[in-house]
């Protein structure tokens, strides 16, 4: 559990358009790494390339290496489906499966992959995952009701429970709180702090306070100019990025002078 990710000279393309250029960074295990930057600077794109979700989009491809504990995710003979079983993802908008109950949603990753499991094992896994996502107490009496009946914040925690139910090594979160109210956001932030005990967590966020609150390291992405590919400007401990950044652009962004 909890593996280190090394990104080496990563270029990401949508067809002919280069979205991200030359990213080099190492993401530490058992820590929260935040990606910040203005809209369209490629942070979500980098995140999606970490579990090979980027190539789901038509014409999208990646050039470079992403090493998961030394194994290149983009090497030959790598099955993207197996990559995604080890690197879970939580999306911007909560997206529980509408045809499934709360419990079925949590177990979706296991059931859809045809794993054989006894009823009691499934109950156990569902409870463990929901507890891990701080949702158990709220839904334990209505596990058979549809997941779409929950509030937005509960749905997002359900999606987190779904992601951790397949016991991944890494959890990627793409602006997980941007569609949620402050209370639900707080619940998810608390959860992120708990998750880093066991997982490598990478989170994209537009909310700088959030990055400051939950992350151990922060990466700042930016565009040189409109239409240019996004680049990694500065990467370091959250403490340093927020209080004593090396780059002028980082300082401008942090203090709200642009972006």
């Amino acid at each position: 559990m909890a593996k280190r990710i090394e990104i080496k000279d990563l270029d990401i393309f949508y067809g002919k358009f280069q979205a991200v250029k030359g990213v080099d960074m190492t993401i530490e295990p058992r820590a929260v790494t935040a990606f910040i930057g203005s809209s369209g600077c490629g942070k979500s794109t980098v995140l999606r390339s970490l579990n090979r979700m980027h190539e789901v989009i038509d014409g999208a491809y990646v050039d470079g290496e992403v090493l998961l504990d030394g194994t290149n995710l983009y090497g030959p003979n790598v099955d993207p489906v197996r990559v995604r079983r080890q690197i879970g993802m939580v999306f911007q908008r909560p997206n529980p499966f509408p045809t499934m109950s709360i419990k079925e949603n949590v177990l979706a990753g296991v059931r859809l992959n045809n794993a054989r499991m006894s009823g009691s094992e499934m109950d156990e896994l569902a409870e463990k995952s929901l507890r891990g996502a701080n949702l158990w107490e709220e839904v334990k009496d209505r596990l058979d009701r549809p997941g779409s009946g929950l509030s937005g914040g509960q749905q997002q925690r359900l999606c987190i429970a779904r992601a951790i139910a397949i016991s991944p090594d890494v959890i990627l979160m793409d602006e997980p709180c941007s569609a949620l109210d402050p209370i639900s956001t707080l619940a998810i932030e608390d959860l992120i702090k708990d998750l880093k005990e066991d997982y490598t967590v990478v989170i994209v966020t537009h909310n700088m306070q959030q990055a400051a609150r939950v992350s151990d390291s922060t990466a700042f992405f930016n565009l040189k100019a409109q239409g240019q590919p996004g680049e990694l400007i500065e990467y370091g401990s959250t403490e340093k990025i927020f209080h004593n950044p090396d780059q002028k652009a980082t300082e401008d962004y942090i203090t709200g002078r642009f972006g």
Partner: peptide
């Protein structure tokens, strides 16, 4: 919605099972 397909892929579900178990039932 494409989000449902992506949610399924992100759980490491192969494409044919995503179609069979998520897209068609929906």
């Amino acid at each position: 919605p494409n989000e449902l397909r992506e949610a399924s892929y992100a759980l490491g579900v192969p494409k044919y099972r995503t179609i069979l178990k998520v897209v068609l039932p929906t």
